[in-house]
Structure formats: C-alpha cells, structure tokens
Write a protein that binds this DNA or RNA. Structure first.
Lengths: 242, 242, 242, 242
DNA sequence: GATGAATGAGATTTCATTCAT
DNA sequence: AATGAATGAAATCTCATTCAT
C-alpha cells in the first residue's frame, strides 16, 4: 500500500532507492508534524526542511510542491486510520462491539496524531483545491465506510432505528468525537481515551437504538428466557451429578 | 455592549464621532464576510477594504492590524449568538423546551453566517494568539453557558443522567451540530435546518435522559439473546449448506 | 493613446494620480531597457526596480507581473513605431517615396531602441504565451500594414511586380533591415542609417519592380517625351522673350 | 573535424573510448533538440538528460556546464552547414548557380533544424559570453565565407554591382531567408522551400546585378513621368468632382 | 563511468503595514 | 479623516552544479 502510493506521487526525481524511500517517509513525517501544528497556510516548506536538517530544495525534489506534499500527508493519515479500522474490525463480533471498536479506534488514532491532522483535513477539505478535493472525497468515503456499514446492517437487523437518516447518524458519531478532541486540545487537558470512548459508545448506542418496545413484553421475554435457563440449569445439574 | 468592546479594542484613533462608529461597523461587517469566506490566512486586508470601497489605510486607522480586526470579528459573532440565546431562551419552559431552543437557535445562527465563522473560530481559536486566546476562552464560556445551565438543572431535576460528565454532554450536543454543518457545506447541499434540529433534539434528549434501569438492562438482555440466536442461525445455516 | 493603455493595464492598484502615471512610465522605460538588453528570461524584476531606485514590490503594484510588464513594454514599442510611420507617411508622395519613408523610419526607430527590442519581440513572440500572442499578432499586423498597403497599391499601379507573394516581399524588406541591425550590433559598429536606408531602398525598389519592359520601347518613350519637352521649351522661350 | 572539436571542448573526463564519443554525440543531439525548441534559458539540463535517459550528472561529466554544452551545440550546427555548403558548392558552375546553391542549401538546412537553432544562434550570439563570442565570431565568418566569395568574384567579373558594400549584400541575402523562416514558424505554416528559394534567388540576383545604366535611368524616367501623369489625373478628377 | 542525492543561489510574487499629504 | 504610494520581509519554487558511492 505504501509503495503504490510512493510511485503515484509526483516527485520530481523518481525515488527508487532505499534511501530515497526513507527520505520520502521522513519528509512526510515532518510535513505531518508541521502541517498539523500550524495548518496549511502557516506551515512553511522552510520549517519542514529545517526540522529534517535538509535544504528546502531537497523537499521540492521529492514533492512537486507544498500543495502536493500536504495532499500526501493527508492521504497517508487517512490510509493509516482506514487500515487500522479495516484490519482490526471484529467482523464476527456483535454490531455493538463493532461500533465500539470503530469509535474507540478513531478516538485513539485521532488523539495520537493530535487534533491538528483532523482540523487540517477539515479546513483544507473545505476549500476548493481542485487537485485535492477529488482524492479527499474518495478517501473520506472509505474512511466513514466501516461505520456506515455497521449502522446500515444494524438498521436491517432492527438494532438501530431506521427512522433516521444515516448521514445524520454519522454526524452524531463523528461530531462528538471531534468536539471532544477539540475540547481537550484547547483546554490543554489530557483525555481519558478509553473512558471517554466507553461513555460515548454507551450513550450513542442507546441513542441510536429504535424506540423501546413496551416494558411488559420485554419483561415477559425476560421471564421466559430465565425460565428456559433455569430449566436448562436444572437439567445440566442432573447431568453433572451423574 | 458594542461600546464596551469599542473601548477595549485598540483602535488607533478615537472612535468618537457617529460616522466613525459606522465605519467601524462597516469594516467589521466586511471583515466578517471575508474572514469567514476565506479563513484568516487567505483573507487579505486589501479585499476587506475593497469590498467597502475604502483604502487599506483606512482599515488600519480603525484597527491596529489584521489580527485585531479578526479578533473583533470573532468576538462580535460570539456576542450575537450569546445575545440571541440569552434573549430568546424560554426560561419558564421545560428543560426539554430550553434544550430544543438552544439547539435550534445555534443551528440557525451558524447556518446564517455560514460555516465560515464557525470554522474560523475553531481554526483561529486553536493557534496561540496571546492577546486573543484569553478573550476567546471567556467568550466560549459565556457561549456554552446556557446549555451548561440547562443540562445542570436537568441533572438536578433528575431529567438528565447524572452519571456523565457535563463536558462530555456538551460535546455530544455541539459536536453533531458542527458536523452536520460541515457535511452540508462540503456536499454543497442545503440543510433542512428545522427538521435536522428536531431530529437532533429528539435523539439527543433521549440519549441524555437517565436510563430507566429496568428497561435498560432488559433491553440489553433481549438484544444479547436475539443476537445470540442470530449467530446460532447463521452458524447452523453454514452447516446446513455443507 | 498612452492614457487609454494605462487604464487597460492590469495594475494591482489603479494608477489614477499624476505621480502614478509617471511611475508607470518610468517602470516601462526601465523595463524596456532591461528587457531589451537582457532578453525576457535574463531580465529580472530586481534589476528593473533597482534602476529606478524603487523596491521590487513597487513594480509589482503597478504591473501584475513580469510577463505583463514585458507585454506592455512590447506593446508600447510597437505603438511608437506604428504611430511614427502612420503620422509621417507622405500619403501624397509617390509609391517610391512612401516606400523609402517606411524603410528609413523603421531603420531609425529600430536603431534608436537598439536591436534589443527587435530581438525581444521576435524571441518572445515565438513562444506560446497565450495572453501575449493574441495581442502581439494584432500589433504585428498593424505594424506591417503600411508597407503592405504601399506594396499592394504599387502592384495595382504596375510599379511593383505582381508575380510575387506579398508575404515574401515583406520578408525581402524587413529581413535585410533586421539583419543589418544585428550585424551592426554584433560587430559593435555604428551604422550609417541614412546611407544604408538609401542603399536598401534603391536596391529593393529595383528588385521589386516588374521585369523591365523592352529597352527599345523605353527608348522610344524617352525620345517622345524629350521631343515633347523640347517643343514645350521652345514654346516657352518664345513666351519668355516677349 | 569532430575530433578536433572534442579536444577543444572542455570535457571534464578524457573522451577516449569509442563509447564515450557516442555519448558526446548523443548529448549534443539531445542538447540541440532542447536548446532549439526552448532557447537557452528555458532549456534545462534536466530535460536534456531525461531525453537521453541518463542522469544529469552524466551530462556534466562530459561537458563543463550548460553554457559549454550550448556552445558546442551551436558550433556543431555551424559546422554542418558550413560543411554542406563547402562540399556541395558547384565551383565550376556560374556565379548565379553558386549563388542559387548557397541560398537553397541554407534555406533547407535552416528549416530542417527548425528556426530554433537559427534563433538560438542569434539570441545567444548577442549576449556577451566571453568564452563563446570569440569562437562564434570565427564560425560566423566561415559560415558566410562562401557567399562572400561568390559575391566578391561576381563583382570582379562585373556580374554583381560593385557600388554596394559586400556586408550589406550579405544582409540582403541572409536577412530575407531568416525572415521567411520566422514568418513561417510564427504563422504555423509549412514553407515551400524550393519555390521560395527559387523566387528569392531570382529577385535577389536581379537586384544584385549592376544596373544596365541606360535601361535603369530610362526606367526611372518612364516611371517618374507616368507617376506625374497619374497625379495629374487624380488632381484633375478632384477638380471635376467639385 | 554513471548516478542518486543534495543544495546554494536566486527569481517571482504576496501582503500587512507605514507615512506624508 | 482618508488615502496614494511605497516597501520589508517572507514564501514558494527552480535549476545548474557537485560529490560520494
């Protein structure tokens, strides 16, 4: 995945060698730092070069320009998150487990890279950078795809309310996460990621569920099930005693 | 309110006359437009002046610089929203009504001014503007105060779950709103404000309510069982197909 | 004429004032010098500014960029030559006189401004500068129009051979002039403009004439005419003696 | 001939091997293409190397720098034309035949290599390249030598007018050729080389011949008289119209 | 002998800001 | 009070050229 992108990039000189690939990585790393700290406009190629201890010209011989470097930085960040989600997603787990995994992973990865990347994506995504916006849109689709899938399947299984646009649900999920990160960054406070993730999952899952059915039919169900269990236990004990 | 800020601001020359006050307003208006359209960095003093049909120098005789002008623009925007909320809040209404009012008003005002102002605040708020950040923090506190009050009172009245940090609840409310706006802007689609507000209020209010304990755990039980059944069915089917 | 162009130019700030117009002229003058000495590529905005004793930024506030400045320089040069030709052309003179005027004037003006402008026009005209080439083509048409007119009329009057493409004739006229200038410049020798012009006109006019009619019919003509003259003289003398 | 130049050039490393000589040729070929397409300044060493599929560094190990490479490219071009002229010149033919050969051959060779080389020579020849200008001047002398010889011999044989500086005659010959090429290039039209050459030879040869004195003055006389008549007619007509 | 990699030295261009009038 | 004019400082980007491998 990394390699294919490296070739796709419009570096002035094709970075074939091993050393070259390392340079590309280094520059991307420095770029990610600077862009996410300063935002696209305030970031300067000079600073990116300086952090690496190379000349600006070096940066420009690996990337066509600031714009393209930033595009690659963003794309890589997306790729990482997408890969992490797609790799780790417990496909055999319950819908709730999958949902929880997505939320937790997002929150973690976003925090690892700071809110900088997040805001970078949002800010730069908004402007009309012709070359960029096409790619970004595609990435954003892949990026939210796992959540959308889980939500959609949940709807079909009746676990998630169907009287609600998916698009709005997505905002209900990503919105709070981003806001929580902003909040933490602005207030210079460290975030209890897992605790926050758990709470968010808890409350969001509840919110997304279909309106509760009547209490008594549930109670009846519970009683039926627990009676079934008890009978099963009884039977089992007998077996055990044998 | 306007006056107090005028004094606080570092206008170079005394904004005594009536005409002067109008100039200040005009510049702030033009500034708001340009800053929210372009963002802080991409906005230029030249364009702000040009939209007003005055010279750049004029802008600089009313404001110490671009930075300060932007600060005032942001502050005014906050003031307006805060005023709108505080004025219109149905203090005698139910907690849910107050909550609904806050959400709806926010969504409306944010959309009226475009997401530009919103993103401007977020982006510029993040950077370390020594002079600015103090003011901004204060504004943000006043800005979210009404919501915080409603939530807090709701908790005391038992209408809102108490096992949840207020700060997180705030993110649960503001986060989706901002995300919805971003989404609409990015996708170039017009937003059904009131419909969206209603749905958000509906689902958020439900989510923030204290769980009816019995109901909650029952629901959870039912869900677990039915998911178990489904998995069993799936497994069985696979076997059947063999 | 100068004024209309000044308005048409894309200066960043509209140069309304008198001082501004002078600056525009100054910059154009400096630009003409530098561009014609160094050619487009080797000329730098820094040098243009430096010769005027202003900062580079000043140049850029009167012209959108190097490209545009150069376009204006070229356009002005063309305008001057065109104006000089059109103003001074002896429209009531013989075809040969008009031809001579055009050649002499061109040679003079080209030399006054050095071959730099000439080569600038040729070199830069060749490349595909979208914005420029349209204008340049139009200018070049106006520039060669007087000569073409004279040649065309000469053909109709039978003074200039008609079995020869006009386009090629134009090359026959302008080609040697440019070459002579190159030659002089390269050899660092001062040119005897008027002598050269006379000689060129002489030989070119001969070359462009229709192939000579038979010698004897001309001789017969001469004899007829001279006899007519003689008769006239005789008659006149009689009158004089009265 | 090739070898003598190879030694004269400042190749960094000894171009001893056969392979090396091929490299030099390849680079010169690529250089000629790029320089003539783009001109000296806009040509880049990167592109020259790229067209050959070698690294820039390779180019620099065969030539001291861009400047020197360009000098060699120009020198080679001159050499080719000079050789073609000197080889093919019909020394036993008439003066007119020799003249025609020179014109035709020049036109052909110039067109073969595009006007690029031609303009390259002119543009770059003008600037003050200390190292280059000496060589170039010598080349230019050899380049025009055949024509000069023919003209000079023609003068002595009475076939070409002697009342005319040779230098100017040279401009009369080369000037139109270059102009015709420019014209064709600028107008993106393909040139009928042989037709144009024939016409040029025709008209130029006539022009360069010594005036048949009687014929010449007679022609002039006739012309003057007929023009006088025409003017009279015109004047009369005006009167008539009143 | 060839080259991958790096870079110094510019060039163009932008823009907030100042100041005399 | 308003502004025309000027500019310092910086940012992006280009390219010929060098050198270790």
């Amino acid at each position: 995945m990394e390699e294919s992108k490296a070739e796709a990039s419009g570096a002035r000189r094709q970075p074939a060698g091993r050393k070259s690939q390392q340079r590309v990585k280094d520059i991307l790393q420095a770029g990610r730092e600077v862009f996410s700290e300063k935002g696209y406009e305030r970031a300067t190629t000079a600073e990116i070069a300086q952090r690496l201890g190379v000349s600006e010209a070096t940066v420009f011989s690996y990337f066509r320009g600031k714009r393209e470097l930033c595009a690659r930085v963003i794309a890589d960040w997306y790729d990482e998150i997408i890969a992490a989600i797609e790799t780790g997603l417990p496909r055999d787990g319950s819908a709730r487990q999958q949902f929880a995994f997505i939320v937790r992973t997002h929150l973690r990865l976003m925090l690892v890279h700071g809110t900088g990347m997040c805001s970078l994506v949002l800010s730069e995504g908004r402007a009309k950078h012709h070359e960029l916006s096409a790619e970004l849109t595609a990435l954003q689709r892949r990026y939210t795809a796992p959540l959308m899938r889980v939500l959609s399947q949940g709807q079909q299984a009746g676990q998630i309310r169907a009287d609600f646009p998916l698009r709005l649900m997505r905002s209900m999920v990503f919105g709070p996460m981003e806001h929580v990160l902003w909040d933490a960054t602005l207030a210079h406070r460290t975030l209890d990621i897992d605790g926050t993730a758990d709470r968010l999952v808890d409350v969001l899952w509840t919110a997304l569920q279909p309106p509760a059915p009547a209490l008594d039919s549930l109670t009846r169900l519970k009683e039926d099930v627990s009676e079934a269990m008890r009978r099963y236990d009884t039977a089992t004990k007998k077996d055990t005693h044998r």
